[in-house]
Computed example of a mutant assay.
Amino acid sequence: MTSTNHKHYQTVKDNSVSKEVFELLHDEDWDMLITSPQPKGTELSKYYESDDYISHTDSKRSIFEKAYHFIKNIALKNKLSLVNSLQKKGMLLDIGAGTGDFLLTAKNDGWKVIGVEPSEKARTIAAKKGIELKPVADFDDHSFDIITMWHVLEHVPDLQNQIKELKRLLKPNGAIIIAVPNFKSYDAKYYGEFWAAYDTPRHLWHFSKTAIKKLFQNENIELVKILPMKFDSFYVSLLSEKYKTGKMNFIKAFFIGLKSNWKAKEKFEYSSHIYVLKNAKN
């Protein structure tokens, strides 16, 4: 991915860990935002060192965490239904597997599963559930029927290399499922610098529908379907309210989430999207 056509888009703060300020640059060639500066290597890991980083814990300490896990359980069933609609049960790889709940759901449904997860804390929790996690380099070419990345692609430092790896690992008739936030949604525009899904600097990239299509097309992978993640507008709005006002405003967040989903119908710009991709037919 090479482009120098970058323009200032937004200044944003790391509201959850460091309180540092970052810039979002709009890459007009790919129609995506880039976090600047981007922390590298071990420097990046310190931005994940928080008990509040919810995808790396099974904690249910607060009403917010309890609500998150309640919605997550519904989402797990929806994710499994999507996977089952695409392929007969075979080998499934989840990259950024977190504490392993999706893999456990798929395993219990008859899939052969394996995952990748950089967080040692999350890997320890997943192992207790009987979920095997390995480095992506350990996998053979064309090993998987389904590869999933649920809100993970935005975290990957080397974006172009990651997409090449997905191409390498996917069986010829397999499918890739990518879920990422959408910076063109109503809730993103409404909350601006306080939009929780910017989540800088953990989110290094911020995608539009055009960006996903172009990035994967570059590796001869075709975008075949886009689906909304309607729950995300409520979750993100609730967290954005906290960043903006200092408190959880459940009622206000609910109405902003509802409005975001309603407005999304016009141009299909939901808070987050699921993208289904397959190898392009020659």
Rank of each mutant, 00 (worst) to 15 (best):
E219H: 07
I146Q: 02
Q162W: 06
E154Q: 13
E154F: 08
K171W: 07
Y191P: 07
N218A: 13
W205S: 07
D145A: 03
L159M: 06
Y191W: 15
T210L: 13
I221C: 01
V224P: 03
L159K: 01
K164V: 13
K189G: 11
N182P: 05
K213N: 13
D199W: 08
I147P: 02
T210S: 15
V152C: 08
G192D: 15
I147E: 04
A188F: 15
E165H: 02
V136I: 14
H203R: 12
D187Q: 05
V152M: 08
A197V: 09
K214D: 01
F216K: 00
P135G: 08
V156E: 11
D141I: 02
N161P: 06
G174M: 00
T148G: 03
K167A: 15
I178Q: 02
P135Q: 10
K213S: 13
D158G: 08
D199C: 07
A175T: 11
A197H: 12
P135A: 10
S185D: 10
D141N: 15
F216H: 00
Y190Q: 14
N220K: 15
I163D: 00
I178R: 01
S208V: 04
K184N: 14
Y198P: 08
Q160T: 07
L166F: 07
F144P: 00
L153A: 01
L170V: 00
I176C: 05
F139L: 11
V180I: 14
A196I: 10
A179H: 04
W150I: 12
D138A: 14
L170W: 00
D187T: 03
I176K: 03
M149I: 03
T148I: 01
H142R: 11
